[in-house]
């Protein structure tokens, strides 16, 4: 048992993550080719516009469901809406936000773009704290768009083209189908004024997505409404990111490696549940923490992966010294 635990705590999490991300990417983007279908309540951006999708982003069906006329939406006929939501919750509750860091195809794409930047020897940029505090609120506006726009359609306040307003502006709609050779989403819809504006915004956001994530790690995740939706339910999830403030020296190593620039991870020594709304649960902070047990990932209150001095030294290659003659 101790051996297994040491193995996990000393593991090179980056490699593990890379392969897991690749696996999920294949399942979600190409799953259709292998007759994989995980349903359409998946809590990540695995885009339903992808013809071979192996499990669909929950937002596409959700928006369609919410766009029903109000009397239908709140009747027995909408039991399927409830089922869809419960399925979403069940998926989510097991892995918490690890969906973002390990499974989301759009997240994985951003990590690949980051990898490309690294290869080119260009350093990343960051936001300043005030910028960060402002930008992080955008995802709640996006979430409001996901929920309110289709309801507006259902109530007859908005035109039908608002039904999937968020999908129209989501970069996933344009980029994901490219992986199965489908370029049909790369067009502007001139049918109505609203559709034109939305698809133009979509094109702009796609451009921003590609450029942004080249310079800023996980650029899009700051604005992701799915991330906001996750956060609402994350307290009930089984997988948890925990911190023991007594053991923290606030050295900031975790903050330094955090793709999402979450300051609390280093500075908050009071919270035990340290998962924040921006968190993508990539566990890089746990891997970068040099204090024994200061940060750990728990499942049902059992430590699954915990920070250790030894694991830190191993991952940073500080546990040995290449002897050189000088």
């Amino acid at each position: 048992m101790k051996k297994i635990r040491d193995f996990i705590n000393n593991a090179d999490i980056r490699r593990f993550r890379f392969w897991l991300q690749l696996l999920f990417f294949v399942i979600f983007i190409y799953g259709g080719y292998f007759a994989i279908n995980l349903g359409n309540s998946i809590p990540v951006f695995s885009c339903g516009y992808d013809k071979a999708v192996g499990g669909m982003c929950y937002f596409l069906p959700l928006q369609h469901q919410l766009a029903r006329p109000l009397d239908v939406l709140f009747s027995v006929a909408s039991i399927s809406v409830l089922i869809g939501f419960v399925t979403f919750l069940l998926w989510f509750i097991i892995f918490n936000k690890a969906w973002c860091g390990y499974a989301c195809p759009l997240g994985t794409m951003q990590d690949w773009i980051t990898g490309l930047r690294k290869k080119m020897g260009i350093r990343y940029s960051t936001y300043t704290q005030p910028q960060f505090d402002k930008l992080k609120k955008i995802k709640y506006i996006m979430l409001a768009l996901v929920i309110l726009a289709p309801m507006g359609v259902g109530m007859g306040l908005l035109g039908g083209e608002w039904r999937t307003a968020f999908c129209e502006i989501c970069p996933g709609r344009m980029i994901t189908p490219l992986f199965v050779g489908d370029v049909s989403q790369w067009s502007l819809d001139f049918s109505t004024k609203t559709a034109m504006i939305l698809t133009t915004l979509g094109l702009i956001f796609t451009g921003l997505f590609l450029i942004g994530s080249f310079f800023k790690k996980r650029f899009f995740c700051f604005f992701c409404p799915m991330s906001a939706m996750h956060y609402i339910f994350s307290d009930g999830a089984l997988l948890k990111l925990k911190k023991e403030g007594d053991k923290c020296t606030k050295c900031g190593d975790c903050y330094n490696v955090c793709d999402m620039q979450i300051k609390d991870i280093a500075d908050d020594v009071k919270s035990t549940n340290i998962l924040r709304d921006d968190c993508i649960f990539c566990m890089k902070c746990v891997a970068a923490c040099p204090e024994d047990d200061a940060l750990h990932v728990d499942i049902l209150n059992m430590k699954l992966f915990t920070s250790t001095k030894g694991g830190f030294a191993k991952r940073m290659e500080m546990d040995r010294l290449e002897k050189k003659n000088d």
Binding site: G121, T249, C251, D253, V257, P290, M316
Partner: peptide
């Protein structure tokens, strides 16, 4: 006590 951790070695 406190050690340096680096994400990208630039």
């Amino acid at each position: 006590n406190d050690m340096v951790s680096v994400d990208e070695w630039f």
